[in-house]
Design a binder for these strands. Structure first.
Length: 435
RNA sequence: UCCUCAGUAGCUCAACGGCAGAGCAUUCGGCUGUUAACCGAAGGGUUGUAGGUUCGAAUCCUACCUGAGGAGCCA
């Protein structure tokens, strides 16, 4: 009985008789020799079958095999410089579980396809090497995110998806029926709840899906995306910036350490990622506006950055930048004002280099009870909906804060992708709900 | 929501007012080291939908549908 192996472990089994359970990725043939290229989810390997070394029916079945047919293939494994990947399997036998019908062949061929076609076949597109590499990098990023917080005293406390009202009031919410006559909304941030759990555990993070019903149609937006949100009691803006920076350095370093092969498949220029080291570029909003004006932007103090503005800023540096102290007027009600300059808020954004823009937004929260009530009134928010949130300022309020990082934007940046839609298995976008 | 562009064979595209085409995929044939293999042959079409202009429309016009890119908003 042959030893079943995963293709990614091929190097450990050179010289052995093994079997691989997978699918036919491609087939090249030349008369009495065929090269079935097999994938098994962990990698791709070239196999070789010689007519003279195999029973007639085995050779013929391989020769006429169709793309993505499922099979278990057996043979001896050896190093082979002529094969991509460096290893090759000399076929001794095969068990074909299903031969894909030629009447309805696998739609995604090794040639070019348009994005519309690929998105309609997203469930199959995931089998291709590029998509496979992206999602493996995503997995490593998620692991690195969890490890960072788990190893630095944070407790994972996830927050609800069904929420009774807007967290921030500005962005559009997805509304759902919630029994009887009640309405619920899908969470657009766990932050307010994390402020409560931070007061219970000191340092917490939540990590889950987030929903924004914005009619945004750009390469940077999904309607459903994953966000990790740490929140820390007794933290000021400087501490939040320090953690955000250390966190990003950790995540990028981990991907470089563990996912070199995948980055190579994606043709990512890893020298750009090697530059992601402390210290990051630090700039106040004031200086960012001056910088932008000097570089041709029409931005004026008091406005948020336009799409091109982040690109202008980040293209100037080879590492991420932290921009802080935005005008309070353009930030959420819960942002703490700078005590020395109340017109600016103690918020910080982390902008990724190479034009990728904002991947983190966060800051210090308003912890003064009276000012919070004032801000809720100014923003015309229903006070009764925030009773529990106001309680956090009545019972031992402390300076605190945190940030949120969109996983998909981080994946797009680290993988060097043009569009965020490839960073999640089944993207949900404006007008894209299937497959 | 607004602006721009595009829908032709299963896929990627050509034909731009005058006979509907190529490459890939599929099938058949050839090739014992291929690397998106190559060579030969075959099958494959209501040109997104509806209307209009014209002797004649894939091609020009109108509306709609679908998709892509961008703007605003955001992670």
């Amino acid at each position: 009985m042959a030893n079943r192996i995963r293709i990614e472990d091929a190097a450990k089994h050179a010289g052995e008789s093994v079997e691989i359970a997978g699918w036919l990725y491609n087939l090249r043939k030349s008369g009495k020799i065929v090269f079935p290229i097999v994938r098994d989810g962990s990698g791709v390997i070239q196999c070789v079958a010689m007519k003279n070394n195999l029973p007639e029916e085995v050779f013929e079945s391989l020769k006429h095999l169709t793309q993505e047919s499922s099979l278990i293939i057996r043979g001896s494994l050896r190093a082979e410089s002529r094969a991509a990947g460096g290893f090759e399997l000399d076929v001794e036998g095969v068990n074909i579980l299903q031969r894909v019908s030629e009447a309805d062949p696998y739609p995604i061929t090794p040639k070019d396809h348009g994005i519309e076609f690929l998105m309609e076949h997203r469930h199959l597109w995931l089998r291709s090497q590029r998509q496979h590499a992206i999602l493996r990098v995503r997995h490593e990023i998620v692991r690195a995110v969890r490890d960072y917080f788990d190893n630095n005293g944070f407790t994972l406390v996830d927050t609800p998806i069904f929420t009774p009202a807007a967290c921030e009031g500005t962005t559009t919410l997805f509304e759902v029926n919630y029994f009887d006559d009640n309405k619920a909304y899908l969470s657009q941030s766990g932050q307010l709840y994390s402020e409560a759990t931070a007061m219970a555990f000191g340092k917490v993070y939540c990590f889950g899906p987030t929903f924004r019903a914005e009619k945004s149609k750009t390469r940077r937006h999904l309607t459903e995306f994953w966000m990790v949100e740490p929140e820390m009691a007794y933290a000021d803006l400087e501490e939040i910036k320090r953690v955000a920076e250390e966190f990003i350095v950790h995540v990028v370093g981990r991907v470089l350490d563990k996912k070199r092969e995948e980055l190579k498949v994606l043709e990512r220029d890893t020298s750009k990622l090697e530059m992601v080291q402390s210290p990051f570029v630090r700039m106040s909003y004031d200086d960012a506006v001056k910088n932008l004006q000097a570089n041709g932007s029409t931005i004026e103090w008091g406005s948020d950055f336009g799409g091109g503005d982040e690109t202008i800023l980040t293209k100037q540096f080879d590492r991420p930048m932290l921009v802080d102290r935005f005008p309070s007027a353009i930030k959420a009600f819960y942002m703490a004002p700078d005590p020395d300059r109340p017109e600016v808020a103690l918020g910080v954004d982390v902008l990724a280099p190479e034009g990728y823009g904002e991947i983190i937004g966060g800051g210090q929260r308003l912890h003064d009870p009276e000012l919070l009530l004032k801000r809720i009134a100014e923003h015309n928010l229903p006070k009764e909906a925030f009773d529990w949130y106001i309680d956090l300022r009545k019972y031992g309020t402390v300076p605190h804060g945190g940030f949120g990082m969109g996983i998909e934007r981080c994946v797009a940046w680290i993988c060097g992708l043009e569009h965020i839609r490839e960073t999640i298995a089944f993207p949900r976008m404006l007008y894209t709900l299937r497959p």
